[in-house]
């Protein structure tokens, strides 16, 4: 066990380094294909959040915060919600709240389904950063506690 560096053992770190990019890419794939295959903003957002949580578990919290800090996560969470609401309100301008306006395209094509892909991306922002924040808050509370005891 390496006590100087934070995080887990060398095996875990190496495997994480290899897989974390793939996990992130897979999350982005799920988000972008949400309107033509199972999955979507929520599932993809969870996977994206998991890739950051993975880094945090393997390398310690500093390594994860170097990539995305709490302020940025909180900002993205609000931004995702506002984006989603804006898409819904834009639908209202052209007829009804949440109306799916714009080019519908062909079925089973990536660029189709009007506002659906955009909504999926907004939800992915919201869910990804929100889930990351939940884990960070629950973990950091515990860390603070242990530091007090010492």
């Amino acid at each position: 066990m390496n006590t100087q560096e934070p995080g887990m053992t060398l095996i875990v770190k190496t495997i994480t380094r290899l897989t974390v990019g793939l996990i992130l890419l897979f999350g982005i794939y799920i988000v972008s294909h949400g309107h033509i295959s199972p999955g979507g903003g929520f599932a993809g957002g969870v996977i994206i959040a998991l890739s950051f949580i993975h880094i945090m578990l393997a390398f310690g919290k500093e390594a994860a915060f170097k990539r995305i800090n709490q302020k940025a996560a909180s900002f993205f969470e609000s931004l995702g919600a506002i984006m989603f609401l804006t898409i819904a309100i834009l639908g209202m301008v052209s007829g009804y709240f949440f109306l799916n306006f714009g080019m519908k395209g062909e079925p089973f094509e990536l660029f189709s389904a009007g506002t659906m892909p955009l909504s999926n991306i907004a939800i992915a922002f919201k869910v990804g950063s929100g889930l990351f924040m939940i884990v960070v808050i629950l973990v950091l509370l515990k860390i603070d506690k242990k530091e007090e005891e010492k």
């Binding site: 909180s74 900002f75 609000s78 931004l79 919600a81 506002i82 609401l85 819904a88 309100i89 709240f97």
Partner: peptide, 12 residues
């Protein structure tokens, strides 16, 4: 819409 939007603008 109004309370939701103002809530998130608030947190932003």
């Amino acid at each position: 819409i109004i309370p939701l939007a103002s809530a998130f603008v608030n947190s932003l």
